[in-house]
Write a protein that binds this DNA or RNA. Structure first.
Lengths: 352, 352
DNA sequence: CTGTTAGCGCGTTCAC
DNA sequence: GTGAACGCGCTAACAG
């Protein structure tokens, strides 16, 4: 095992000398450019191996004085979580600048396929790469494929369009997230009391057509069916992540479900949920699990309304998006392990 | 709100021109070097503000052709988790190389204060910065303070020495980690059955003198006492993170504790715990919570022996360490939010 | 196919 | 106090 990392400060010049070729030839081999005979290339490769050479990224970056334009397409009228993503993108201004990357954050209605598709159509020529919160819809899929065919690098962010030709997805496995929520909820409720039924579990969701929410419901349902069959799942109610709607929906749910023991909110707008519970004097009596850490959910975790949150880190996602897009446009390899976004579990005790 | 990031590709030259000074003078102001009159400096600062200039890191890195030597001091005979840290440090070879950083991983007995202190004493002159897994001991504290006074940058890794003058700690809040383990364990067990006592909870720990383990026990105890008073904590048993010792200790625990309902392992060597439980036919009957994700704990999570793991990400820690040490030696500011290492909760459903 | 050379943007001597 | 000029290691355009 080698515990010595980067001893000698080698340069391409050293490699070229060792291989008995010129700087330019060595450079061609290193960067896999054409115009080098097989045996010359071999000599260079050998020298690289033998000396343990790795190019100095800063110098390459400087010499390759090309600049890039990235677009980041986020939902307009954004909820707290999307604003966090945007803030984290802005916070990387220096990182982008150091790589000659100009970034524009574009806010649009990602929930309307036509509007989003039109927005995407206007991108080529103005940008080299795009990150977008995708809607998994035929029009969007087609628009993404057009971008990719036009030579742009495209990654989906937070919500994926897996059947499109996007090069990468930056976000969590939402089925796993839903399963995690289900496990926590089921285990926290515990086994049914002797001779009693398990009770009902309410599900509040944003919209039936958003892929991430749908996948969470799916994963949640899987676990409940498999491991906690004594619990009855109520049909999901859709509040479009809006606190007011959610408040009304939960009010009705509480009134109409005497055996309600828990609620799972697959999205945002948890404030409404908390209000309805508080009104009914049921906060902390009904077990709640939700998603994403925001000022509101943090408060509700601290006061016990939420038993746990399942979350993704907007900072990690913004940085991963930046690294991946940069790797894509510069033709570097992306380190899968580093770009994996984890499904986090947040309890009152491990709040960041 | 500005959605436009890094429009114009400005250079120091542009700034100098705008301020009506030379490149060298602009550079002096930007980097806060002496030899510039107050009013010239002001002109430059204004130009920087007005144009929104940020230096191109790659160029600076290249021009400042200075190199650095970092030492990373890890426990020898390392357990799986420490090996993961070492692997992740090695995986960053390119990152280090791009910044002209030579890294040496030094394995030593960090559990013996004398040996560790001696090792640290030999560092100045050979290195510019050190990351070490610290023992919170007067000798180590003194050794760390000597390094810092000698002009080295020092960060503690995984286990802290908070009373020393180390510049930064890369690792999790172990009290929070212990609390998290306690909450999970208490809630998963559920309330006591009517008319029954809550049962006993066993604690397996590495050593009484390692700060991280001690803090975890403390946090765990806090939560159990506060929120789950029906549970009886058994006195901790010390297995030095060794599977064989742990196996024997758990065997004895099982034999001697008829009302045992759960076990918390604050450290490594969980394999022994699993063996003892399996022998007794009690795997999945006794609720277990442990730390760190390794091949062994992953297996035990999947087969249900562990209900949950509390973990820290060795990859994040290795990268954070690298960024922090680099920021320290180059005098850059460190972004606290980005360097915060999270206490992760891992269930079967959100295994990475 | 291969080699020579002029920068990329900034730090850092040196002179002035 | 201030400015001119060279070079960091690599890329890319141009010769050969």
């Amino acid at each position: 095992m080698n515990n010595q990392i980067n001893d000698a400060p080698l340069t391409l010049r050293d490699v070229a000398a060792a291989a008995g070729v010129s700087l330019a030839t060595a450079d061609r081999v290193i960067n896999g450019r054409p115009g080098v005979s097989a045996k010359t290339a071999l000599k260079v490769h050998e020298a690289v191996q033998r000396l343990g050479f790795r190019p100095l990224a800063a110098a390459a970056e400087l010499a390759r004085s090309r600049s890039w334009r990235f677009a980041v397409v986020l939902p307009s009228g954004g909820n707290r979580f999307m604003m966090d993503i945007a803030d984290n993108v802005r916070a990387q201004a220096d990182w982008f600048r150091a790589r000659r990357i100009a970034v524009e954050i574009i806010e649009t209605d990602v929930f309307d396929a036509d509007i989003l598709a039109t927005e995407l159509t206007g991108l080529p020529g103005r940008f080299d790469a795009v990150a977008l919160v995708a809607l998994d819809h035929p029009r969007i899929r087609a628009a993404i494929n057009d971008l990719v065919e036009g030579g742009m690098s495209v990654v989906t962010l937070v919500s994926d369009a897996p059947s499109s030709r996007r090069q990468h997805y930056v976000g969590i496995d939402n089925i796993a997230a839903g399963r995690t929520a289900g496990s926590l909820l089921g285990r926290f409720l515990g086994p049914p009391r002797k001779g009693e039924a398990g009770g009902s579990v309410g599900i509040v969701t944003g919209s039936g057509s958003l892929r991430d929410h749908a996948e969470r419901r799916f994963g949640f349902g899987q676990v409940l069916a498999e491991e906690f069959p004594h619990l009855t799942r109520l049909p999901p109610v859709e509040g479009r992540d809006d606190p007011d709607r959610n408040r009304d929906l939960v009010r009705r749910m509480l009134a109409g479900t005497p055996d309600l023991v828990a609620i799972y909110n697959t999205g945002e707008g948890s404030v409404g949920l908390g209000e309805a519970l508080a009104e009914a004097g049921l906060a902390r009596k009904i077990l709640c699990v939700g998603h994403e850490l925001t000022p509101a959910t943090r408060r509700m975790l601290l006061d016990g309304t939420f038993a746990a949150l399942v979350a993704q880190d907007p900072g990690h996602e913004a940085r991963s998006m930046a690294r991946v897009l940069h790797a894509l446009v510069t033709g570097q390899e992306i380190v899968a392990a580093q770009e994996h976004i984890r499904v986090q579990v947040i309890l009152r005790d491990n709040l960041p």
